[in-house]
């Protein structure tokens, strides 16, 4: 078995300031990697570079699309190929569902968009798959023709997840998927995500500042501070026995109820 994603020395600067510097890791098929750190630590910059939204200044991001094609450098890919990757093999769940959804298109249309983008042309079949996915993210099928603007925040986030997973991606990037949701909705969403990730054998990179999220979802953890990775390891290992002073601070900052 070879890694799905190999990240080598990714650096992104904003002028003189550092976005993220010298980040490298391997992501294996079926593995969930968590990236934690405080605001401004470069988590989102790193995720943007990985997902192809930003172009890193240096470094390589190798993705193995399977089918014996070998690992390809995503940063050097032609844009057409990268787009194809983004709407088939990859998925990106935004923190704010409004960034990832088309708010003036019905829920069914939102879920069907990726299917139509890769050439699905049978209305009935598209609708059936959209309905199936709405069910999997616990949205009532009767709301299929409603616009996301009529949905609650938690439903919008679940819809965004359905829209991303409908094409059967192998790699999902999530940027604070539970941010902005209240705790009970968060818990249900996490439950749902955990089920989907395990059932579909997804690999995922999850950026969050919420340690509970990574505790539940992530196999491995990367702690970032000031654009650099300060500690990596198995999630439980890092959270239960943090070595770096910043990780210790992070873990001890969590409120105990």
């Amino acid at each position: 078995m070879s890694p799905l994603l190999q990240v080598e020395g990714v650096t992104k600067r904003y002028g003189a300031r550092i976005g993220c510097e010298g980040v490298g890791f391997d992501l294996w098929p079926g593995e969930v990697m968590g990236i934690v750190g405080e605001s401004g630590s470069g988590k989102s910059t790193l995720l943007g570079c990985l997902a192809g939204h930003l172009t890193p200044d240096t470094g390589r991001i190798l993705y193995d699309a399977g089918a014996g094609s070998g690992a390809q450098d995503v940063t050097a890919m032609p844009e057409a190929a990268r787009r194809r990757l983004l709407r088939t093999d990859w998925a990106f769940v935004h923190q704010n569902p409004r960034d990832g959804l088309r708010m003036n298109v019905s829920a069914g249309g939102n879920v069907g968009e990726r299917l139509m983008a890769v050439g699905a042309r049978n209305y009935g079949a598209i609708r059936a798959r959209a309905g199936d996915w709405l069910g999997r993210v616990e949205i009532d099928g009767a709301r299929m023709d409603d616009r996301p603007s009529a949905f609650s925040g938690g439903m919008q986030q679940r819809l965004q997840i359905a829209r991303n997973l409908v094409s059967g991606p192998r790699l999902v990037f999530m940027d604070e998927p539970t941010g902005g949701l209240d705790v009970s909705v968060q818990a249900r969403l996490l439950d749902l995500l955990r089920g989907l990730v395990r059932d579909m054998g997804l690999s995922a990179v999850i950026v969050t500042h919420d340690l509970a999220v990574v505790r539940l979802l992530a196999d491995r953890l990367m702690v970032m501070k000031s654009g650099r990775v300060v500690e990596t390891g198995l999630t439980d290992q890092v959270l239960d026995d943090p070595q770096h002073p910043y990780s210790q601070l992070l873990v001890s900052s969590v409120l105990q109820v």
């Binding site: 787009r83 019905s106 069914g108 249309g109 968009e113 990726r114 139509m116 983008a117 299929m144 023709d145």
Partner: peptide, 14 residues
Amino acid sequence: DYGLMHVKLYEDIA
């Protein structure tokens, strides 16, 4: 990248 055009037609039918 013309998937969006079909999204519009999909919305019409829906």
